[in-house]
């Protein structure tokens, strides 16, 4: 991964008044893009918005509840077989509204994936979905979730891997080719790199985009294309909107 995971300017980093302008927080300066000569005075001091935003992020939950199954519920055969075959590869098992999910350390992901695909009794040959969830207060802030299905045995399981910001996960494209675009999407929207992926590029956002929109600290309403094209105009629009 070559680009730094820069979140774009949040609700807070608004420019100071008195004809001076700050560089846009977190936004890499573009060649030829001149900082605006004058911007309207901001309605509020710039720091207040920023810290409010940070406090909001810090108050987010630090992970999903992932309740363990009730004591009287037997584990499905493929989970107990996995626990026996690969000792220590399953750190947590959870059952919620009828869905089984397992938590796996990143180092064992490929072993677990190959085991789940090939072992009789599991045969998870269809990788429905690869996605991620962002839990910013947690040290390993991302959950990467693999939704698996077996077209022959017709059962499902979710495999979850926890990963810290900037740390690469092994790619499962060698096991399920369908993960190719799905991992690209996770890379694009969350900034999680995948090691061994054949073609790791952005897929939905433009190639030159800064930041990863599905992260929780990325604002809903970002600068958009106007910032790329004309930062000065964008600042005027933004200031006018805030005064309202």
């Amino acid at each position: 991964m070559s680009e730094p995971p820069n979140p774009p300017e949040g609700a807070g980093g608004r420019p100071a008044g008195e004809g001076k302008s700050e560089p846009l927080a977190g936004q890499a300066p573009r060649a030829g893009a001149q900082p605006p000569a004058s911007v309207p005075a901001a309605a509020k001091p710039p720091v207040a918005g920023k810290s409010a935003e940070q406090a909001k992020i810090a108050a987010l939950p630090a992970g999903p509840p992932d309740p363990p199954p009730p004591a009287d519920t037997p584990l499905p055969g493929f989970i107990s077989a996995l626990q026996t075959a690969l000792a220590g590869a399953v750190t947590h098992v959870s059952l919620w509204v009828g869905d089984w999910s397992i938590v796996v350390p990143a180092s064992r992901l490929l072993d677990v994936a190959a085991h789940l695909r090939d072992t009789p009794g599991a045969l998870f040959d269809f990788c429905s979905d690869v996605t991620a969830t962002d839990w910013p207060p947690r040290a390993d802030r991302f959950d990467v979730i693999y939704c698996l299905y077996s077209t022959r045995l017709r059962h499902r399981v979710r495999v979850k891997v926890r990963v810290a910001d900037g740390v690469a996960l092994p790619s499962v494209t060698g096991i399920w080719p369908s993960a190719n675009w799905l991992e690209r999407e996770v890379f694009d929207l969350f900034g999680i790199p995948f090691e061994g992926h054949p073609d790791l590029r952005r897929i939905l956002m433009p190639e030159e985009w800064q930041g990863h929109p599905q992260r929780k600290d990325y604002p809903l309403e970002g600068p958009g294309e106007l910032l790329l094209e004309s930062p000065a105009d964008w600042l005027k629009v933004k200031a006018a909107r805030e005064i309202e």
Binding site: P61, P64, W96, V97, T133, C147, R158
Partner: peptide, 15 residues
């Protein structure tokens, strides 16, 4: 309540 789930249906175009 807090928790997560995946649910699929057969849309005209697939899962």
């Amino acid at each position: 309540p807090a928790g997560e789930t995946y649910h699929a249906i057969e849309a005209p175009k697939g899962e």
